[in-house]
Design a protein around this nucleic acid. Structure first.
Lengths: 200, 200
DNA sequence: TTGGTAACAGAATTCAAATTGTGTAACCTG
DNA sequence: CAGGTTACACAATTTGAATTCTGTTACCAA
């Protein structure tokens, strides 16, 4: 059960993840987490003030995996902004999709946890929006994107791709054509519906 | 309770709506519907084969209200396609938003009913997509939209506006800036991120 | 003094018994 | 015979007693 040394936050978070996967978020108790670690449940309370705080910490850790993976793409100035936007959005879909596909129980558990803790979700959105804004700002600087407020642009792009990253649409991500649909939306966002002739 | 004449489908549907509003979808029973009409529950079964069928019928009636209201805009060839697209999407948001705001209990009830009966939801989406496709086809004909498959274009536009019509995002519709956010997305869809200079 | 235990009160959850609801059948009535 | 009734089997839901979980306290060990 318990590996050599004393308990630390990371061990507890990992154990919590296991318990979540096995029992689901509704039945996962801190007694279970204690048992998984070979300690009493009171020991867990030495590290986290409440069950809610523990669930929040575990949610944050999970969301931050995506954030960190995407940050690499967002800040890669080797890739031109248009392609970078496409790659970033595709990677966002791909990483969420992979999580949902590879470990459905765990994904379902986190889905519920994150909707409960809307603070963690809101901060995650803020993080992603900041990354997106960086890409768009680069595009504005290099004059491939129209000169508008990058924050407003980021929000609009994020809104327009809701179906490809919001957990409410998890079911859609398993259908074959999703990547192509995201690609079609990207094309519309980058080039618009506008016929070349109507542009000045 | 029971108004003069014999029971018909419409009377039952209206009574069902009342029961749904009062008790919510989880507690609404066909015994309640019978009671509201002053008849036994078995009388309801003379008109609908099952509780599921009754719920489906009431869902369809509800969804068709929006469909019919929007059809008027979609087929109004007086309005130029670009503006028609904007108006149609704005009206879609407005009508759902109004329902959610004016009678939250009933809206919540229908939200659950419709997610249960995914057939009705799927058909509703098909209806809306057909309307949208009509607008886009007009735009392609009059050369204000790029010459692409209107069906694919419709799907992309519908996907990109998911946040403004999908019931999972009902909460967002009450926040002050939504209409402006939809407008920003519309602008992006119509004109794209592209800077005029990069167009041929 | 940090990291652990066991014991506890009150809140939350489970489980089986009792109630209520669904769908059908056999039967009236204009 | 269309449109209603009552009566019924069995499925689903509610209810309340018994159990389990949360968060705290008092205490122990390195």
């Amino acid at each position: 059960m318990r590996a050599g040394g004393p308990l630390d936050a990371e061990m507890i978070l990992s154990a919590t993840e296991d318990v979540l996967r096995r029992h689901g978020p509704a039945k996962a108790t801190v007694v279970d987490v204690g048992r998984a670690l070979g300690v009493s449940h009171a020991a867990v309370y030495k590290h986290f003030p409440s069950k809610t705080a523990l669930r929040e910490a575990v949610s944050r850790r999970w969301l931050n995996q995506d954030r960190d993976a995407l940050a690499a793409i967002a800040s890669d100035s080797e890739i031109p902004p248009r392609q970078r936007l496409r790659s970033w959005l595709a990677a966002l879909l791909a990483s969420k999709r992979a999580k949902a596909h590879d470990d459905p129980e765990l994904f379902a558990a986190y889905r519920i946890l994150v909707t409960e803790n809307s603070d963690a979700a809101a901060e995650h959105v803020t993080d992603l929006l900041r990354q997106l804004q960086g890409i768009l700002a680069d595009g504005v600087t290099s004059a491939v994107f129209r000169d508008a407020d990058p924050a407003a642009l980021a929000l609009a792009v994020f809104s327009a791709t809701t179906r490809f990253h919001h957990p409410a649409h998890t079911g859609d991500w398993q259908t074959p054509g999703v990547e192509d649909e995201l690609d079609a939306v990207c094309t519309l966002l980058i080039d618009g519906l506008g016929h070349p002739d109507v542009h000045p």
